[in-house]
Design a protein around this nucleic acid. Structure first.
Lengths: 133, 133
DNA sequence: CTGTATCCGACGTGATACTG
DNA sequence: CAGTATCACGTCGGATACAG
């Protein structure tokens, strides 16, 4: 991502001026911004869940998307996948320490979103009205 | 004509009623997770910027995407758009109080991402290796 | 300078059917 | 139960050209 031929000076943690970490931010936010990732993370906060348990709880997600979402989270080391070789098979998904760490700022963001939702929705209506003339 | 990009509503069946606020979370995270929104927000933290100034600084974003991103942020009340009727025209974009409020948890998330990037990248490599057997 | 309009390929998403 | 495979469709995003 970052040009290898350019040495990034050790700037103090001042987001907005440093561009290199923005790529990293984008990488994680891309996952967080996934349509379903946050739902899954939220569902797993309380403890491990089975596949269909997640599918039922989230209600609206397709089997395919749940699988892909879980694979993505697993790939990033945010979720563990535990297979019990029983019949019928049972698979538990659980947040890793890393995943729980991520859940914290995500929840903060979610809380902000919830608290300011009226303002945002109001702004959207105003914008749409202004745009509709 | 309104760009199709800024449409957020019409989420299918409601996910868990117990977690109804998750839909609000998703609504905001959809914006935060946009490929470019976070970059723009970061660039605006330090103060108002002009259109081409943003385009130059972000370097990689197309004109179209910058416009769409700014429209989306403006629609959500996160950014103000100020037109100076001069020749040539000048347009300033600036974070609103709401936008600055959002920038805070976003920055926390970004900081987390930056700090844990090695773990995530390592997990990705491990996963890819395991998957390549 | 600051956009808008249009074309078009790439990708995300869902529905469905099938496997272990 | 927990997936995988395949197809069909819509949207996203970039490039380009053009307008105010």
């Amino acid at each position: 991502m970052r040009p290898a031929n350019i040495r990034v000076p050790a700037l103090p943690p001042q987001p907005g001026t440093d561009h290199s970490d923005c790529r990293a931010v984008a990488s994680v936010l891309a996952r967080v911004g996934d349509k379903w990732s946050v739902f899954v993370i939220m569902m797993l906060i309380d403890g491990p869940r089975r596949f269909n348990e997640l599918k039922r709880t989230i209600a609206g997600i397709s089997q395919r998307m749940l699988t892909l979402t879980l694979r993505g989270l697993e790939r990033d080391g945010l979720v563990t996948r535990t297979v019990f070789p029983t019949i019928p098979p049972r698979v538990d998904y659980e947040l890793t320490d890393l995943g729980r760490g991520l859940a914290e700022p995500v929840r903060a963001l979610g809380q902000w979103a919830f608290e300011h939702l009226p303002e945002i929705e109001g702004a959207r209506r105003d914008f749409d009205v202004r745009n509709a003339d």
